[in-house]
Amino acid sequence: MKKGLYLLIFLMAFSACQSVEETKKPDDLIAEDKMVEVLTEISIMTSARNFNKRKFESLGIKPENYIYEKFGIDSLQFERSNAFYAANYMQYENIYRQVKENLQGMKDEMDSLREVERKLNDSILAAEEELDSLQVDSLRIKSDSLKFEQDRKLDSLINPRSIEIQ
């Protein structure tokens, strides 16, 4: 019984092993640096589409077609190139590392722009608050000066002869 079980496991393992053909380099292979750009753009488009799918659908935007037109490639060329690079693990890992670096660089740039915009908005708000306080202070000064003028007029109405000198 044990021999039959071992024989069955051996036959299953042997039949599961198959020769894997190496992916041949396509004639129209997309260059590695261009592939990085294409995959970066695909990542951005996928994120945008997932963020607001209805907007994409209502505008009739087809991200794949946009990317193919932008980079002057077709879907078959992309698929063959992607399959070739995927079969070469180290090269594919390098491509995706560069894609990740590109996306991180874009994120860092957007974060710095947001920070500049935040500081600018804070400065505008502070300037508006300062302007409002200056306007209130100037109104207070004007009202104080009017009060002073009124006090002087009252004093000038007093008859100087009626003041007793001690």
Results as ranks from 00 to 15, higher is better:
residue 4 G to P: 07
residue 4 G to Y: 10
residue 6 Y to D: 11
residue 8 L to N: 09
residue 8 L to W: 08
residue 9 I to L: 15
residue 9 I to A: 07
residue 9 I to W: 11
residue 10 F to Y: 10
residue 13 A to M: 08
residue 13 A to P: 08
residue 18 Q to L: 11
residue 19 S to N: 09
residue 21 E to V: 07
residue 22 E to K: 15
residue 24 K to C: 06
residue 25 K to D: 08
residue 25 K to L: 09
residue 26 P to K: 02
residue 29 L to A: 09
residue 29 L to F: 12
residue 35 M to Y: 08
residue 35 M to W: 11
residue 36 V to A: 01
residue 38 V to W: 03
residue 39 L to I: 04
residue 43 S to N: 10
residue 43 S to G: 06
residue 43 S to W: 09
residue 43 S to I: 02
residue 44 I to E: 00
residue 44 I to P: 06
residue 44 I to F: 06
residue 45 M to S: 10
residue 46 T to S: 12
residue 46 T to R: 05
residue 47 S to V: 04
residue 49 R to A: 07
residue 49 R to Y: 05
residue 49 R to V: 01
residue 49 R to K: 13
residue 50 N to D: 09
residue 53 K to L: 15
residue 53 K to Y: 13
residue 53 K to E: 14
residue 54 R to N: 13
residue 58 S to W: 05
residue 58 S to D: 13
residue 58 S to Y: 10
residue 59 L to W: 06
residue 59 L to K: 11
residue 59 L to H: 09
residue 62 K to F: 13
residue 63 P to M: 04
residue 64 E to C: 05
residue 65 N to L: 11
residue 66 Y to N: 06
residue 68 Y to G: 03
residue 68 Y to D: 00
residue 71 F to D: 00
residue 71 F to E: 00
residue 72 G to K: 00
residue 72 G to Q: 04
residue 73 I to N: 07
residue 75 S to W: 00
residue 76 L to P: 01
residue 78 F to I: 03
residue 79 E to F: 12
residue 81 S to F: 06
residue 81 S to H: 01
residue 83 A to P: 04
residue 84 F to P: 10
residue 87 A to P: 02
residue 87 A to H: 08
residue 89 Y to E: 04
residue 89 Y to R: 12
residue 89 Y to K: 14
residue 91 Q to L: 09
residue 91 Q to E: 14
residue 92 Y to R: 09
residue 93 E to P: 00
residue 93 E to N: 11
residue 93 E to V: 03
residue 93 E to K: 06
residue 93 E to Q: 14
residue 95 I to F: 01
residue 95 I to C: 04
residue 96 Y to N: 13
residue 97 R to V: 14
residue 100 K to H: 11
residue 101 E to F: 02
residue 101 E to I: 07
residue 102 N to C: 02
residue 102 N to L: 01
residue 103 L to E: 00
residue 103 L to C: 10
residue 103 L to G: 04
residue 104 Q to I: 09
residue 104 Q to S: 08
residue 106 M to W: 05
residue 107 K to G: 02
residue 108 D to S: 13
residue 110 M to E: 15
residue 111 D to N: 14
residue 112 S to N: 11
residue 112 S to W: 02
residue 113 L to K: 15
residue 113 L to E: 13
residue 119 K to P: 05
residue 121 N to A: 04
residue 122 D to A: 10
residue 123 S to E: 13
residue 125 L to A: 12
residue 125 L to Q: 15
residue 127 A to T: 09
residue 127 A to G: 00
